[in-house]
């Protein structure tokens, strides 16, 4: 349990640092800006309490916001991501089949599930994020393109991370 907490803290620090110092400066013009820090929220243990999940997501978002100078936007998107995660898991998992403290990472869960999980949730997260950021439906197609391209970018980076820290299911 302590190990899980430690892993998550390390993951949190590493991803947030990477996000605010590296990925903040990476992007395809203004069209694709990756937000791979959401991997931290995605990899929180399956059986985490809803309130805890929301609180952590909110806090993570706020930390990223602090570096992005956009108070609230990333927090809101992260909270939306947490909600999406709860819904997604409720639909696709039977919670009792999985250990409550299991990390839903590639290697522990099947790749297809993991890929879908990352894809759907990052799409949701980015949608909320960019819509809140532009805060208007004016030139909606432009926002839509930003959402899609950023989502692809983020998913690729998350998959690369997962590949990097791939570990076979320990049983």
């Amino acid at each position: 349990m302590a190990k899980l907490l430690l892993y998550n803290i390390i993951r949190f620090v590493a991803l947030v640092v990477l996000q605010v110092f590296l990925f903040k400066n990476v992007g395809y013009y203004n069209l694709a800006t990756p937000f791979p820090y959401i991997l931290f929220i995605l990899l929180l243990p399956v059986g985490i309490g809803n309130f805890t999940l929301y609180a952590i997501a909110f806090a993570t978002g706020l930390v990223v916001d602090a570096f992005y100078d956009t108070p609230g936007i990333n927090a809101a998107a992260a909270v939306a991501l947490a909600w999406g995660r709860i819904i997604f898991m409720r639909i696709t998992l039977q919670t009792d089949n999985y250990e409550s403290y299991m990390t839903p990472a590639w290697g522990t869960v099947p790749f297809r599930w993991f890929f879908l999980y990352v894809l759907v949730l990052s799409l949701f997260h980015h949608g909320v994020l960019f819509l809140l950021e532009t805060f208007t439906f004016h030139q909606f197609h432009y926002t839509l393109i930003r959402i899609l391209l950023s989502c692809i970018f983020t998913v690729i980076i998350i998959l690369l991370f997962s590949l990097l820290f791939y570990r076979k299911k320990q049983r």
Partner: peptide, 28 residues
């Protein structure tokens, strides 16, 4: 609780967004 907590936290975030970002505040 997932939904209500979502509303709670999301509302809080949006409050922060609107309060602290001039553009969003103006458009809101």
């Amino acid at each position: 609780n997932a939904f209500f907590l979502f509303i709670l936290f999301f509302g809080l975030s949006c409050y922060l967004v609107v309060k602290n970002n001039t553009f969003q505040r103006a458009s809101a």
